[in-house]
Every structure is written in C-alpha cells, then in structure tokens.
Computed example of a mutant assay.
Amino acid sequence: MPLVRVTALSELAAADWDRLLPDDNPFLSHAFLSTLEESGSVSAATGWQPDHLLWQQDGQLLAALPGYRKSHSRGEYVFDQGWADACRRANLPYYPKWLGAIPFTPVGGARVLGDAAASAALLSALPEYLLQHQLSSAHINFTDAASNDLLASQPEWLLRLGCQYRWHNPGYRDFQDFLDTLMSRKRKQLRKEREQVAAADMAFVWYRGDELTESQWDFVYHCYVNTYAVRGQYPYLSREFFSLLAERMPQKIQVVIAERQTQPVAMAFSLVSGSTLYGRYWGCLAEFDRLHFETCFYQGMEFAITHGLREFDAGAQGEHKLIRGFAPQITSSWHYLLHPGLRDAVGDFLEEERAAVLQWADDALGALPYRRGEA
C-alpha cells in the first residue's frame, strides 16, 4: 500500500514536505512542525506522538497528512472530552485516537496536503489504518474550504462547526481610519482603553525573530509560562522551541514587548504570512489595567495596517473580541469514529450543535461595533 507512516518529520527533507503546501501558512511548514518535535514539545511523553501519514508512489511523495496519536484531548481546541467520557462509561476505548491538526494551534488551513487524487486516496485508506493500529477514531481540525470539500466526499466523516473571531483590514490608512468606522460609543471605549495604557507609561517595541537576544527569549518564555501558571496548568511548549524556531523561520516571527520605564512587563508572540498576522501567545509579569487588550489586540491591528496585512487572527474563543471589531468566523473539523453506536450518537449531537453554532454566529454580528456594517 502506498500509505506510509512517519514518526519524525526529520525523516523527510524539508523541500519535499514544503512542496506540498498550497500557501505560505507558517504552521504547516516543515520548520514549524519539526521544531515542535525536536524541542520535545510534542512526543509520546506529552501525549502527542508524531504519526504523520504519507501517500507515496514510485518513491515520490504525492500527499501528506500531518498527524499525532493522542492519549488525551488537551491542546486541541475542538473539545471531545464528552465523547471520551461516554466511551468510558460504556467501557469502550476512546484513547489512543488519531488527530490531524497543528498542535496547540487553533488556526485554520489545509490539512491534507498535495495532489487532490492522492489526498483522496490517503483519506480512503485511513479507516483501515485505524483498525490496524487499534485507534478508536480520526479527527481533522480547523480545515480550510478545499479540505472540507475533500472530506465531505468521504463516507462516514462527521462535520463539526465552531466559531472564532477575525479582524479584517480592508485597507485602513491608520488606526484612526479604523476608529472612524465605529459607532461613537464604541469608538470612545477603544480610545479610553488605549489612553489608560498610555497613562501607565507603556511603550511597545516590535521585534522580528532574529532581532531578539536569548535573554529576551527568556523573558518571552517566562511570560508564556506564567499565562499557564496563573491557571494552575503546565505550558505546552518548551523553552527550546522558541530559540529553535527563531533560527529556522525568523522572518515569520513577530514579537511585541511592552515596556514600562524601559523594563519589559508583557509580550505577545505572533507568526505572519503574506496576508495574515496570527497572534499566538501572550503573557505578563505584572498586571496593568487594559494591558492585555492593547498588547494582544490593538498592537496587532496597528501592525496589520502598517504592513498591509488583510487579516488578524488573534486566537481562539473570546466573545470580548466582538466589540473590538473581530467578526465571527465559522470553523470546521471532521471526525471519523469506528464504533457505529458512538458514530450515530455523535452524529445526532453534531447536527443539533451545527444549528446552534450558526445561530450564535449570526446573532454575534449584532455585537460588532461598526456603524456602517463593515466587518
């Protein structure tokens, strides 16, 4: 069978993998995914065992599906713990399962990479792969339109919808140009938030990945870890991840550091493509009123305007983004469950959930602050 399993992306040449990518989404690149592995951030020990699936013919790589064997459901942002609990009560195994996703990253994009016919063949072979390796199910999260079309053509895959929020830049001249599109009350609220931060004597400095020193990366990581510590959780990423990624894809990294009287107090870490800023990690070492909004939202919006980026993806969840101009956007994931009873029950649940998500997204449009309906 042309289906091949690879348990370390280092087994593949970066050029062979990246040749399959349909766009410049940085999270799909060999550099990003291999850095997760080589830094120890994903491994069997962390419950994210690399299990990439390839479709090869005559020694040529035609399609690929980045994936992981999971022993839990943490770090996925598509929540199936309820399904796992139902299996536990019914004495059915749910873990290990197979997941096609970017670890810890709820960013949409292509998932089945490469030639369309080879991609379809790879997906068709996946159910047999699950049986052979005693995996309960396959899940492919945050898919783009092309992947949705491909998965919709496969039998017995179940579609799940979610809702995130994106800020769109139609070509604003500056931040004031954006503010001018808002209703008066909302415009005043955003101005007040920014003024509160400015009154705290904050300055913001942007750095590309290769412009940060190792001591600054220590600060970035300290902030990142603190975000989890305040919730009593362990961070997903290792310290080595940040330095290694800065070596491999420095041009894709943008970090803004908030300084008060020249002392760094907070940061936001982002990646960038040709059209999109992806806000990923935030952290602070001291609490200041409205600092989160300024560092994670308004600084990113200004960066997008300045650099002509059309979209700002500031991360998953967060209805508070609506009043700051981030419009609802439907997300998709797909699920293949081997057990027929579980598949039927989940299918019924997802049918009801899809209707509720679509209604929520439609209602959320009413919370946007634009006076002319721009989004």
Rank of each mutant, 00 (worst) to 15 (best):
268 A>H: 07
136 S>I: 06
74 R>Q: 13
68 Y>Q: 06
166 R>M: 10
76 E>D: 03
298 Y>C: 08
319 E>I: 14
320 H>I: 13
96 P>E: 00
295 T>Q: 08
57 Q>D: 03
335 H>C: 09
130 L>A: 01
102 I>L: 02
281 Y>C: 08
195 E>D: 12
261 Q>K: 14
147 S>E: 05
235 P>K: 07
247 E>S: 02
124 S>C: 15
128 E>W: 11
297 F>L: 13
374 E>P: 13
333 S>H: 06
249 M>A: 04
341 G>S: 05
276 T>H: 07
49 Q>A: 14
238 S>N: 09
334 W>H: 09
314 A>R: 00
311 E>Q: 07
41 S>M: 06
105 T>H: 03
217 W>S: 02
27 F>G: 01
310 R>M: 12
297 F>Q: 03
180 D>V: 13
57 Q>K: 05
165 Y>G: 00
101 A>S: 13
331 T>G: 08
204 F>W: 06
288 F>H: 04
313 D>S: 04
203 A>K: 09
230 V>I: 12
340 P>L: 06
183 M>K: 15
25 N>H: 04
289 D>I: 08
209 G>T: 07
230 V>C: 11
196 Q>H: 15
24 D>Q: 04
170 P>C: 06
299 Q>V: 01
16 D>G: 01
349 F>P: 00
144 D>Q: 07
76 E>K: 02
334 W>G: 02
157 W>Q: 02
217 W>I: 12
150 L>A: 03
219 F>N: 09
358 L>N: 04
364 A>C: 14
256 V>W: 00
238 S>E: 08
184 S>F: 01
144 D>L: 05
44 A>T: 06
165 Y>N: 00
82 G>M: 05
296 C>N: 06
61 L>N: 02
351 E>V: 14
371 R>T: 11
305 I>C: 02
315 G>V: 06
13 A>N: 07
226 N>W: 02
375 A>D: 11
287 E>V: 11
355 A>K: 15
94 Y>W: 08
92 L>E: 02
89 R>Q: 13
186 K>Y: 13
325 G>K: 04
335 H>G: 05
332 S>Y: 12
238 S>Q: 09
163 C>T: 12
252 K>C: 06
309 L>M: 02
134 Q>N: 07
348 D>E: 12
